[in-house]
Write a protein that binds this DNA or RNA. Structure first.
Lengths: 353, 353
DNA sequence: CTGAAAGCGCTAACAT
DNA sequence: ATGTTAGCGCTTTCAG
């Protein structure tokens, strides 16, 4: 009994107890403790021994050392998430889903900056290589083309791409961008608009291309022409949206409505409209893709198409776990819940300007 | 030569090369390689041997295994960051600073959810304990009082608290909340306002208390009375701000200006003003604490007091590194750059409503 | 200037 | 139903 107390005291003082301490206290060998803790299905053990072990674990406050485990199993139970800009509510929304799903699967998330990663790969390889990660989730930076992205990826590292596809490299999860853009366009058409423009994302980004296609298809399906200056490419950022709308108002004054590829750009566009003295929605209707809390608080509140951010993150994480478990890579499109128009104040029937 | 080629091939195939592979290829022992790579200052080595080792590292693309290192050194070079809500631009702004500083110091950041942490400590202890982290950065959830926070903290884990202090537990970094709130108040006073209210944060949160004190001091210094309903406590969230302003407009119609404890709440307040038909800034001036990109895009654009989010993150991270290196804990207030009023469109001289 | 040896904490194959 | 053994990859005395 004194021995036990002494051990407890020693352990409390030091860095923590080891599996050997637990084993001694429970009068078994470390291997048994390990197998109990890891719920080895092949293990046959007396109920009494098991409780002795559990009590010992409890008493010592034992926590397995992750480094020891990782070294032995060659797995870290850590995934890396590389995002260009956590400050962007779209990305952080996705990150919430990732973190949640990781936690539920006893994984933990390491955060990295995707821009830095593409700029200084050696830095991040040193930091995140060397067995620190079991897999990676990557959101492609806007200015990173396929060739450079391919070069960056480690073929030996299970990887899932967020919001983007890479020809020849399966393992990506994207939104139903076509449907979302089409839904936005259809909403405007239903309101009676016939001269509709599109503030697209960066031309080189594949999600922007898909959204543009969705816009074009919806217009075509309705038999509506797309004016020569009706598609303006811009960044996904707010400044991009602001400048793009400014250009559009000048180049195509007949336009009564616009589908914006991202809420963040749409918030910028709202600013440009205000500066130009164009009233929204009276003179110009705006529908934006992606729904974030700020959309309820702009003036006027933005009508958006909601995309399931959390679900994308969850799905991506689940897919990564499959890949880590050696399943073959596959691509996935998040279709449920389907992109849904959230009517607020920025879209209304057309009225001449 | 063939031996070398064979080794390279073997290594490329498998999980990666080890320090032993490098040592063999360079005709030295692992210990020398280790000391070269870790820049052991006591090491005396022939220049030629050193280049041989460097070449071997290069050829094999050797990366030290983090688990092995961590196990041996009892340090992981990982810090945990616990945030209540990454979706909040304030927190993600701070996180940017943390990640940057960590990377520059060869540390890497593990992300966790502070709300979940306070709700299910065992989960996170299992995930983040066991030597996985060298230290933690924690943003206190709004509803977590001192007692419960203390209980949650592991006294053996170097910890830095973000935006909050904990009596009896030094190691926190906060903004100059008094100065920021005072600056906002003084700005309104300079514009000629005399009946000024304060939308404060949650009453139990210490940063909210400091901001309220800053407001009160500035009012007192100007000889201005604070009306009986002029201080309304609300959450830091947008809904909180909306409701709080609604209440305020009813309870204190004489108020011509308001200092809001957080931009996010201010955006909500802007919504409430619009709904109530109160024009900003003509009938009501608003100044918000914290500056984020959205503030430029509200209607009207928000006048704010800029707080150095990135700097807080950086400082906190640096402080944590000190603590990890066994420096005694200390508290710090970020005073530079000082809180600065960013004039946009939401504050103007008073006019009767 | 370099090598030998021990051990960090854990798991898994193989005994008994 | 439990024990023995070996070794994951690395760093760090201590020897030479």
């Amino acid at each position: 009994m004194t021995r036990v107390r002494a051990m407890i005291r020693r352990v409390a003082r030091s860095r923590g107890s080891t599996i050997v301490d637990v084993a001694k206290l429970a009068n078994v060998t470390p291997s048994v403790v390990s197998r109990v803790l890891n719920e080895d299905p092949t293990l046959r053990i007396k109920a009494e021994t098991r409780t002795r072990i559990e009590r010992a674990v409890e008493m010592l406050g034992y926590q397995p050392n992750h480094a020891g485990r990782a070294l032995r199993r060659s797995r870290s139970d850590v995934v890396g998430v590389l995002l260009p800009d956590i400050t962007n509510p779209i990305y952080s929304g996705i990150l919430v889903g990732i973190e949640q799903c990781a936690r539920d699967s006893d994984y933990v998330v390491m955060l990295g900056n995707a821009d830095e990663f593409s700029r200084r790969p050696q830095t991040y390889n040193r930091l995140l290589g060397g067995g620190r990660l079991d897999g990676m989730l990557i959101q492609r930076p806007n200015d990173l083309d396929d060739t450079r992205l391919s070069r960056l990826l480690d073929p030996g590292m299970p990887t899932v791409l967020l919001n983007t596809t890479l020809p020849g490299t399966p393992g990506s999860v994207i939104f139903d961008d076509w449907r979302a853009a089409a839904a936005a366009t259809e909403h405007l058409i239903a309101l009676g608009h016939t001269s509709i423009a599109h503030l697209a994302g960066p031309p080189a980004v594949d999600s922007a291309r898909r959204r543009r296609e969705g816009f074009e298809q919806a217009m075509e399906a309705a038999g509506l022409p797309i004016g020569p200056s009706a598609i303006v490419h811009a960044g996904y950022g707010s400044d991009g949206g602001r400048e793009a709308l400014r250009d559009l108002l000048r180049a195509a004054p007949e336009v009564t409505a616009v589908v914006v590829a991202s809420v963040v750009a749409a918030i910028g566009a709202l600013g440009a409209a205000r500066e130009a003295g164009v009233r929204v929605p009276e003179e110009l209707s705006i529908v934006a893709l992606h729904d974030v809390w700020m959309a309820s608080y702009t003036a006027p509140p933005l009508t958006t198409v909601r995309m399931p951010l959390r679900e994308l993150g969850e799905t991506a994480m689940r897919m990564l776990l499959e890949r880590i478990a050696d399943a073959p890579p596959r691509d996935e499109v998040i279709r449920h819940p389907a992109p849904q128009v959230v009517e607020r104040g920025s879209a209304a029937p057309p009225r001449a300007r």
